[in-house]
Amino acid sequence: MKKITTALITCCFILGITTGVWAEEANIVTFPMNAKKYIVNGNDKMMDSTTFTEAGRIYVPFRYLGYSLGADEKEVSYDASVNTVSLQLNGQAIVATLGSKILQVNNIDVQMDVAPLLRNGRVYLPARYIAEAQGYTVRWDANTNSVLLSKEALSENQPQITTKKIQSETDTLIVDMELPVISGLKNTELQESLNKEILFNATQNQADHEKQALEDKLASQSGEYPFRTHSLYYKYQTFPSKDMLALIIMTSDYTGGAHGSNYRQYINIDVKNGKRITLKELFKDDVDYKQIINREVAKQIKASEERGEHFFFQGDLAFKTIRDTQGFYIKGDNLVICFDQYEIAPYASGFPEFEIPLSQLKSYM
């Protein structure tokens, strides 16, 4: 019975994929409720499935979400043996697993608040997790009873990002780093400084890990404990908006023990004026921005705990205030406040993020 079911699901994913794919950049995408179509820049595209709601969330078909954002047929696939759907989109490798709230983007775990669902041979998930990573704003349009994805035109000063790879492997350390390289920034001095900083930090980190791995291997020869090969990985994500560019550099390493460690660096650039900015600089001088953000973060923590979605530290370790060097980035119409692992929550909670609508902060910014 299991083999038959798997075969049927696989067939369902194969059937219907000849639907035309929109190659032009999609500035506005609409998924109407209870309709077997989606609309790209005003043009109807047919689907073999419909959008639906469950537990207050709106689910769209994974395959057609990929198509709507510019993926072609060969870039969307389903692996029935491990219950995963995969999408190659604008240099991002995106993998979703049925029943899991973890979405993988370029092998980096992204926490979702719901898991993908399987309905009638199609995998569904909320559009925001993939669309927002591609620079889209996602909202519900009550006038058309639709999920609306829209992309704001980027500034003409928006720089280009290419990838520099550094890879090596020995019996003590595996290194696989993908580093962002900025070009076309209006402020060439800042551009050169950022590229040097990113490369220097990565190569210095590699040198430190090589030294530690060798020392740990020599120490293990005493027989007190086995040596396990260390590792160091770098990935990055970009979030461009009209006049801003956010770079998130994600580091994962393993130096022994039960699990590895993860770190993130947030770089925010005002591309219009060619300067790197801090969270404080987003707000007016006379505004107590920390108080405003602290209040919203505390509110969202409480709501999340009441829903049983995430767990946060209590007592002396509980969240009290954001830092002067608080991580953040702009994603669509939201300011995203970012915390490190273990900063306000246990390891299993990953990197807690709190989205605050920019419209809510407009008068302070």
Rank of each mutant, 00 (worst) to 15 (best):
T321D: 09
T162P: 06
V85H: 01
K45V: 03
L232C: 05
R264W: 08
T321Y: 12
V95L: 09
N201V: 03
A133V: 04
E197S: 04
L232W: 04
Q291E: 10
F351S: 10
M1D: 07
Y67A: 13
G308L: 13
E132Q: 14
A142F: 13
S241C: 01
A207G: 07
A153E: 02
S220Y: 00
E25G: 05
D285G: 13
D109L: 09
G327F: 06
M250D: 01
L173Y: 01
Q204L: 11
Q221N: 07
F239Q: 12
R276S: 05
A348R: 12
N120K: 15
E178C: 03
F52M: 12
G260H: 10
S304Y: 01
K290L: 11
T170D: 10
A7W: 12
F227K: 07
E306I: 04
K2V: 07
G56W: 11
F339R: 03
L282V: 01
E343W: 11
N145T: 04
K196G: 07
I248W: 02
Q265T: 04
N27G: 03
I249S: 00
F227E: 12
Y364A: 06
F62D: 05
Q167G: 05
F351C: 09
D270W: 02
L103E: 09
N27S: 04
Y234N: 02
K362Y: 09
Y129P: 15
K164I: 14
Y124W: 12
K101L: 14
F319E: 13
L335G: 00
L154Q: 01
F328C: 08
C11Y: 14
I337C: 02
L118C: 03
T203L: 10
